[in-house]
């Protein structure tokens, strides 16, 4: 079933697709960043695809394992055609930015903010891109592999001590 949407993408955006696989039954398409928004819009608006439920957006950090370092991962579901697809967009560390999909699915609003907060990937065009889980003033991006797990940045001190 989901095979069809991969074929549709291949027919329309052949130059944008880097690779595809379907390990464990999850249809996956690795995309270039250039026309990402066009691809997403295509997935949402075509009647036989109709991906109207934004499921998940996250980032994988391949620190010192793979280049480019980051991979932005989208999971989409179509309620009408019952298909699922995973899109992956590799981005470099020096240029860790992708266009924001907020205008296509408002449901990715917080997911993008979270990815920005924890991984430092910038989503261009997001209306309110600021930290969401950590606080303003937190240094670094904690889910990056080079952030030590117990590097704490407390913002308050013991009662009675000078803060």
């Amino acid at each position: 079933m989901s095979k069809k949407c991969v074929e549709r993408l291949q027919a329309h955006f052949a130059d944008q697709i880097l690779s595809t696989h379907d390990a464990a039954g999850d249809e996956t398409v690795v995309l270039k960043r250039d026309k990402l928004l066009d691809v997403l819009k295509f997935l949402r608006d075509e009647a036989d695809l109709a991906f109207n439920l934004p499921v998940d957006l996250t980032v994988v950090d391949w620190y010192r394992i793979r280049e480019p370092r980051f991979e932005v991962v989208y999971h989409l579901y179509s309620y009408r055609t019952k298909q699922r697809i995973r899109l992956k967009v590799p981005v470099d560390e020096d240029d860790a930015r992708v266009p924001s999909s907020y205008s296509i699915w408002p449901g990715f609003d917080w997911y993008e903010r979270e990815a920005y907060d924890l991984y430092g990937v910038v989503f261009d065009g997001h209306p309110n891109l600021k930290r969401i889980l950590m606080w303003e003033g937190f240094e670094g991006h904690p889910l990056r592999k080079d952030y030590p797990i117990n590097k704490r940045q407390p913002i308050t001190t013991l009662l009675g001590e000078k803060s």
Binding site: L118, R131, I132, L133, M134, W135, P142, L143, I149
Partner: peptide
């Protein structure tokens, strides 16, 4: 505003 109970699930799991 959320995040007051962020406990680092992912980092801990890794």
């Amino acid at each position: 505003e959320v995040g007051y109970l962020h406990r680092g699930f992912e980092k801990s799991c890794e």
